[in-house]
Amino acid sequence: MTKQRDILLTEVALRDGSHAISHQFTVDQVLDVTKALNDANVPYIEVSHGDGLAGSSVQYGLSKTNEMELIEAAASVADKSKIAVLLLPGIGTLHELKEAANLGAKMARIATHVTEADVSPQHIAYAKELGMETVGFLMMAHMAPVEKLVEQAKLMESYGADTVYVVDSAGYLLPDQVRERIRALKQSIGVNVGFHAHNNLSLAMANTLAAIEEGATRIDGSVRCLGAGAGNTQTEVLVAVLERMGIETGVDLYKMMDLAEDIVAPILQSPQEITKDSLTLGYAGVYSSFALHAKRAAKKFDIDSRDILIELGKRKVVGGQEDMIVDVAAEIAAKKEKVLS
């Protein structure tokens, strides 16, 4: 039997990574990745559109394959790992949650902007009713002061979340900021505390270690950094680091390295690295999935994508507002035109 795990990892490549490949996952890719992750003994594998259940849209990008087929495929080959799904109230509904549960999803991660937890009670309660493990996922955690984050985490706990995550969707937080947030949650809520990083400032690993030191026991990673922006904490690297620190994840390091190299790397259209766009996300505090959309808009309007991202950060745009990208790009282009004429 496996040893007691100190940290429970959730692999998010098949959800967060959906952004990085413009939601083009196929059933075969999901089968291959899930089989290998299951074999490597990863406890949770998240599968959904990047923006969660029902995220397939013109706004966020249409899925190549219906996510329910992907969830069903993943569940069919995961006999040890549990399949998790993400749901953003306002995008997905109880209807899709039920469908996912029927297909074998065992964990529901209900995500809201860090100040808007009170749109989630219905979904958390229903996931419980469906027999799922529940996670409250507080996104864009850098946009609220620590006291506000604590208040919102308490709300999610009161709705029945088994775990509450601090989600650094923009990859903006610095290690000390992660530390104070996790510490505050550990002091004020009774359920598990989790942390989800993005590597836009090359701080995903440092932030994750800070979170673990402060008591976070649920951690997200993406193998080969297959996540939005510059990706998340690289799962196989994290497994190695934690092993050296004597922290048990129960995950097989060699198998993780193999699947990263042999199965996940070929899926990537280009290697995940910190490009100037993803660096700007972290620098300006912008939701990581905006990167590719901003790049496309910049090309269309012949402007610098960094200017779009910086402006979006100034306007305090939240996750899901992809329609603002074109809006802001058009504005910048119009201003530029004016200056030139």
Binding site: G90, T93, T115, E116, K316
Partner: peptide, 29 residues
């Protein structure tokens, strides 16, 4: 909040005339 997405989606079809409708709501603080 599901009532918003579901009711709006249906009305986009029934009243707006689209063959298929979808609605998303975002709260910005």
């Amino acid at each position: 909040i599901d009532e918003f997405t579901e009711t709006t989606s249906r009305a986009i079809e029934k009243v707006g005339g689209a063959k298929k409708g979808k609605a998303i709501i975002i709260l910005n603080p």
